[in-house]
Amino acid sequence: MNIVWIVVAIIIFTILPNFISGYYIRILTAIFMYAVLSQCINLMSGYMGYLPFGHVMFFGIGAYMTAILMRGNLPFIVAMLLASLSAIVVSIILGFPVLRLRGHYFAIATIGMNGALMTVVQNIDITGGARGTTFPIIMLPPGQVYSYFYYAFLALMIITTFAIYFIVNSRFGFAIRSIKANEDAANSMGINTTNTKVVTWAIAALFTSIAGGLYGYWMSFIAPDEVFDLMFITNSIIMMLIGGAGTILGPVIGAFIVETVSEFAWSGFMEYHLAVLGIITIIIVFFVPGGVIGTITEKIRDRKIAASIKSEVAANDR
């Protein structure tokens, strides 16, 4: 049943660009990109319980490494893959020390790392410094460029979602969820918590950096205070919460809701944009704390348990 809907949705999004204008294609592309970021935050925070507030550093690394490598005349795909490889290496090197920290401390340490990295990028020559850097221009008509990135981000969103779905439902996924549930208990049950955390962060860094590389190429120009902006992560967290943290479709749904709301309903009131985002967040936290998907699955589970208790009572009565 679910699978049917997902296939239908994928087909619809595949043929959709033929029927809508460039403006809507651009909005959908942004939604797909945010869904990827939010999915990565969900893997780390929703499933493992480690909130990587400074995770945008891998977005920045992806964007900058891709740009630098493409200036060295590498084709985009090769540059992007090498860039994501470098993000993985960085996540592993930083992961071992920083993932020892728990809760607040981990979140704050990643913010610090992101800030420090951004300042380095602003101050060295190879990145173009604070002024930013450009990507090679794509020699295609604008319409085709739009749909190129539309399909690229759509594919990335689907791959990321499926990958994380299989990861969290595998044996390794149980290790990830055990860490969120009780890290000490997980360790004493034979789970190598340190390695699990680092590998999970590396997976999140991989998809985030690919999104960063694509984003840079899409924008064709990047600056440090843009691609290392924590706003990407706070938005992704809000999307995760709205859709449902620790659910597989939550981040995708959340990305659709938040981006659609901020694009359409308030595009006429730009000056209230931030306040509206803030108020939506507060409302969500208070009224649907499990997020859309979380609330639905909880209802279903409660109904199941209620039914099983009822049938047991009925059996006892007989």
Binding site: S45, Y272, A275, G278, V285
Partner: peptide, 24 residues
């Protein structure tokens, strides 16, 4: 009660509202 993710996001939301007020 929602944990660290919620308090972080809620104080961030508060910041957005105050920032927006100032901008306005």
């Amino acid at each position: 009660k929602g944990g660290i993710v919620f308090t972080l996001i809620i104080t961030f939301a508060l910041r957005l509202i105050v920032e927006n007020l100032i901008l306005y």
